[in-house]
């Protein structure tokens, strides 16, 4: 049985971390989650980013956020990456299996994955 006691343990573990507040992080990964994005498969992409950020222990510096339609529905699923002090990078036609490379090469390595961006 999942118990609320486990939630209390999570609370105690998290208490000391100061970076929980949205916007205090250096990197934002923003996934388009309007009708167009959802229909094109944005939900598994979003979840893959959430899982990857947790698994790689990046939660202190990276936030995964959802947004509405940004107007390029034919390119969905669209993912925008904002890094402090750098130009925004827009990834198009994203899928679950592209997520790991973006995490490794761009989020951790600092080099955007050119082949996934808009041509």
């Amino acid at each position: 049985m999942k118990s609320l006691a486990e939630l209390s343990a999570i609370r105690d573990k998290m208490k000391d971390k100061v970076s929980l507040r949205e916007g205090s992080n250096e990197t934002r990964i923003v996934v388009g989650m309007a009708t167009c994005g959802i229909a094109a498969g944005a939900r598994p992409v979003l979840n893959a980013f959430v899982e990857a950020v947790a698994k790689e222990g990046l939660s202190d510096t990276v936030t995964v956020l959802q947004t509405g339609c940004i107007g390029i529905c034919q390119y969905e699923p669209v993912v925008e990456v904002y890094k402090a002090g750098e130009e925004k990078v827009t990834y198009v036609h994203m899928s679950e299996d592209k997520v790991q490379k973006v995490i490794e090469q761009h989020i951790k390595g600092g080099k955007p994955v050119a082949e996934y961006t808009m041509k």
Partner: peptide, 21 residues
């Protein structure tokens, strides 16, 4: 609302550990 009550005010539900729970 129950989950938030247990977590206290400072921890958002979007924390990966909470989502896993």
């Amino acid at each position: 609302r129950e989950i938030r009550e247990t977590l206290g005010g400072d921890i958002p539900l979007s924390v990966p550990d909470v989502l896993v729970w």
